[in-house]
């Protein structure tokens, strides 16, 4: 017996179980989208809703649409969203302050009103006939019956949609294109610039010190006058106060008086 058949305007009980498990999850995920702080979390919750919708499409005798939903939405569109999120910055969270006063509470009240309107409208509406189901239409295959209608009655809409897709792709390319204001610098100009500037030495920064007992990155190299060089160690290590003292690796009885080293006091 067909599991998706409709008897007395009621679905079979497996479908009811599926609905009452999945629908609360989807509603919770959608509500979570509104309250989570980070945009990445919103995107993941939206993916949950979209997968749930795909399952409902399949339950509603639209298997092809369900698979397209997974491929197009949870695949392509959500990937695009996450890609742009990474481009714009993952931690670009919402600002808390309102630009328009009372806009947040107004938005919540307004949407609750719209929700009540929609749901009360649905509960009062009468179809006036029994639910039919798609058994007859899907008998020779869902894809076949969609194709039959798409390429006969809706073939003009199909063509227009293809024009829309091409326009959108072109528009995205035009928007993302950046006009170059200055000519591109050649290798020669870059080299000349590097020699002329003074912030980074042309020969590169000195490496950390290498001693008989220690050669890690946390010990500064010594300058010719015996003082440790700040440029030879990472600024991060110095800021953490984790620099080792090169005086510890000096030979103890070399030249007695000056070896006790205030050189590494910093």
């Amino acid at each position: 017996m067909n599991i998706a058949a409709i008897v007395n305007n009621q679905t079979q009980s497996p479908e009811a179980v599926l609905f009452f498990i999945l629908a609360p999850i989807m509603v919770l995920a959608a509500l979570g989208m509104l309250v989570v702080k980070k945009a990445v979390h919103s995107a993941l919750l939206l993916a949950v809703v979209m997968v749930g919708l795909a399952i409902f499409y399949i339950a509603n005798e639209a298997p092809f649409l369900g698979i397209v939903q997974v491929v197009v939405y949870t695949g392509a569109v959500m990937m695009l969203f996450l890609f742009i999120l990474m481009l714009v910055g993952v931690d670009s969270s919402d600002s808390i302050e309102e630009t328009i006063k009372g806009q947040r509470i107004g938005g919540v009240l307004g949407s609750v009103g719209v929700g009540f309107l929609l749901i009360s409208l649905l509960s009062r509406a009468e179809l006036g006939q029994d639910y039919v189901g798609l058994d007859l239409i899907n008998s020779e295959g869902n894809v076949q019956s969609i194709a039959k209608v798409l390429f006969t009655r809706y073939v003009w809409a199909f063509e227009v949609i293809s024009a829309l897709l091409i326009t959108a792709a072109l528009g995205a390319m035009v928007l993302a294109h950046r006009e170059r204001i200055l000519p591109r610098k050649s290798q020669r100009e870059l080299a000349a610039e590097r020699v002329r500037q003074t912030s980074i030495p042309v020969a590169g920064l000195p490496g950390p010190g290498t001693y008989a007992q220690h050669n890690a990155v946390d010990i500064p190299a010594l300058l010719p006058d015996g003082s440790p060089s700040d440029a030879s160690v990472s600024k991060v290590i110095a800021a953490r106060g984790e620099l080792a003292n090169p005086a510890n690796f000096r030979m103890k009885e070399s030249n007695g008086n000056s070896a006790n080293g205030e050189a590494g006091e910093e």
């Binding site: 509603v27 919540v108 949407s111």
Partner: peptide, 11 residues
């Protein structure tokens, strides 16, 4: 469910 999701999206 559809109406509910639509409302949440609008909010």
């Amino acid at each position: 469910l559809s109406a509910l999701l639509f409302t949440i999206g609008a909010a």
